[in-house]
Structure formats: C-alpha cells, structure tokens
Design a protein around this nucleic acid. Structure first.
Lengths: 196, 196
DNA sequence: CACCGGCCATACCGGTGGTATGTTTGGCGT
DNA sequence: ACGCCAAACATACCACCGGTATGGCCGGTG
C-alpha cells in the first residue's frame, strides 16, 4: 500500500514541475528564479533542492514532462493500423499541431539545446519526438513508399524544418493560413519523393 | 582627419567584441561573465558599459560580427554571374560550410533566439543569412527553375533544415561524410522540385 | 511510545549583472 | 601655451540569484 508520505512527496514534486513548466514557458530559463518556482508551488527552495539537484535538473524534469505529452499523442497515431503513408501524414499534422503549444516550443525546441547542452538534448530527443520521426521515415522506406535515403540525416533535416516551421506558425498573425501553407509544402515535397 | 581618440575608442570596442565572440562561443551566454570578457580585452567593466548598454547589447554586437562574416561570403557567391541554379547550389554549399564555424553555430544559430528573443532574432536574420536564402529562392522561381511555392514558409523550412543539419555535421565524428550525405539529400530534393 | 529518517524550512555565502561616482586624457578654443 | 570640457575609462558598491549548510517537523516502524 502506498504510504501517506509518498503521496505528499510526489505531490510537491509534481507541483514543482508544473510550476517550472509554466514559468519557464512564460519567462524562459534565465528569466525565472528558483524562489519564484518554489513560491508558486507553495514550498521553499529547501523542498526544491530536496527533490532536484539544481536548476538544470528541474529544467530537465520540465522538459521530460512536456515531451511526454507530445510523445504520447504521436505514438498513438503512429502505432495505428492504417497504412504507413497515412499514419505518417497524420503524424506530421499532429507534430505541427503539437509545436503550437507554447510550452513545447519554448522549453523543448528553443531553450533545451542551450540549457541542457546540444549533446544531451540530442540524446533526449532520440527517446521522444525525433525518435518517432526517424522510425516513421524508416517504416516508409521499409514499406517501399519512398526512395531509400540516409535515414539519420534526412530525419534531422525534417525535424529541423518542422520545428522552425512550427515556430513560424505560432508567432504568425494568421496561424491557420501559415499552418496550411507549411503542410502543403511538406506534403508536396513528400509526394515528390514518394515512389510511383 | 580621424582623431586619435576615435582610434582608441574603436580599438577597445572591437577588442571587447572579439573577446565576447570567443567567450560566448566557448562557454555560452550564461556561462561567461562580463568581468572576464572585459579582462581578456584588457579593460574593466566600466569601459564595457561605456560602449554597450548591457550584456544583451554586447551579445548582439557579437552576433552582428559573426553574421556579417557569413553574409559577406554568401552575398559574393549569390551575386555572381553564373546561372541562378548554379549560384544557388554553390550558395548552399557555402552556407553549410559556414555553419561549421563554432562561433556561427553557437552564437547565431543556437543561442541568439534564446538570448535576443525569437522575434528580434527573426528580424535580424532577415538582414543576414535568411534574407539571402529567401531572395535566392525567389530568384529561382522568377527564373522558372522551380515550381512556384510559398516563398516565406519554404524559406523557413529550408533555413531550419539547414541549420539543424549543420549542427549535425559539426558534432559528427566524421563531418565530411555526414556533410556529403546532407548535401546529397538536399540536392536530390532540389532536383525533384526543379522544373523539367 | 520512542526514535529514526525522509521531507522541508531558514539562514547564509559567493558570484554576477548593473549602477553611481570618481579619475584620466585627448581635443580645442583662445 | 594654457585651461577647460567632454569622452573614455576605472573603482566601489548594490541587489539578486543559484547553491549550501544546518536545523526542525512529522509520518512510518519496530
């Protein structure tokens, strides 16, 4: 049976992560102080440093939280029973849509490489969105839907393009229009490389 | 006639920018202190704050310095008298090669959007590398070399893809190989969209 | 019921960005 | 040649923040 203590501990921990996600999203990593994160979680820095080894560790926890949400949605789509090509297209739309989330955009796309260091960020992304993009591309190749291309670098190109495109959408004055344009360009490109 | 005083002032200013570029490249924005930047330029923080309004302003000066170098090389190629298609290809190679510069990569590609804010970074990039990519694409369309696509978003996709690809190259254990692969994928894609 | 250890609060330190103020120095009018 | 003024720095200091050390509280356990 789960102890009362564990409930409390877990509760304050998740409160800290929630608070961190919100503040990091609004003011960025450098712009938010640990005191304020702790204050909004109604604890003090002491509690924070009991659960996390420091500011970076707390950021990574926030990163994981944000990435997990996106991963869950993407994984559900990509594991469906539709044909690979349709799954990929739906996954593409879902990823673009996920990138519109301010938290995902600022924390996972923009600040994570700087805060965590590019190496560590890359390793983490392998387990999340990027890993899904790569395996999807691999599936398409295995299914004979697209030409055989270097999977690793092509995935990087796709990931970079989509991330920056998503930022473009989110900060546009007419997100729907720009989003549709981007989807059009990508789909157009995909059809070009699709085997006929 | 240029006064002696102006020489001194400009000299210390450029010394500060040089020092900033090197340190920001090596340890990142948050990891370098103004005292150390000033120390390496053999001045004190007083001089620094006389020439720049603060840390951000100094970073933007470093950003401009790094971007200008790349812009100069790219502009030279893209204004050549070869056919538009060849110029674009050479420009592509030069851009990838420029991205291998650690200073350009860390300062202009990775940290600038975070430090300057995405909005301001985007406006700045319009005057540098991204502006060139967009106008090159426009030229290709005007020359009838490629299909008419939404220039703005397609340029963003290209820019994002190339930037992240360049990072991939630079941190690879065999940069030449990965670089060749990326060039291959891009050129392959470009040929797909090229009008026949 | 006592006591142990995880959970958290409080107090404090070092370093950093920023500011306020003092000091030097080169140009320039007279 | 002299003196003054403003630009170009240097110095001293403050506020804030990340991190650490220490102490207290309280639920679990024997």
């Amino acid at each position: 049976m789960r102890s009362r203590r564990e409930d409390y501990s877990e509760s304050t921990r998740s409160a800290l992560v929630d608070s961190a996600v919100k503040l990091f999203t609004k003011r960025g990593y450098a712009g938010t102080s640990l005191d304020e994160i702790a204050r909004r979680a109604r604890v003090t820095k002491g509690a924070l440093y009991h659960h996390f080894s420091g500011k970076q560790a707390l950021f990574e926890a926030a990163f994981d939280a944000v990435e997990s949400r996106v991963y869950g949605r993407l994984d559900k789509i990509l594991r469906g029973d539709e044909p690979p090509w349709d799954r990929a297209l739906r996954g593409l739309r879902e990823f673009i849509s996920s990138c519109l989330d301010p938290a995902y955009q600022r924390i996972a796309v923009h600040e994570a490489p700087v805060v965590m260091g590019w190496q560590r960020w890359r390793e983490a992304e392998d387990r999340y969105s990027f890993g899904l993009i790569r395996s999807s591309l691999q599936d398409l190749i295995d299914a004979g839907e697209v030409d055989s291309v270097p999977v690793e670098v092509t995935s990087r190109l796709l990931f970079g393009a989509l991330s920056s495109a998503a930022t473009e959408i989110a900060s546009s004055s007419e997100p729907e229009k720009v989003g549709a344009q981007i989807e059009e360009v990508i789909v157009h490109l995909l059809h070009q490389v699709r085997r006929r």
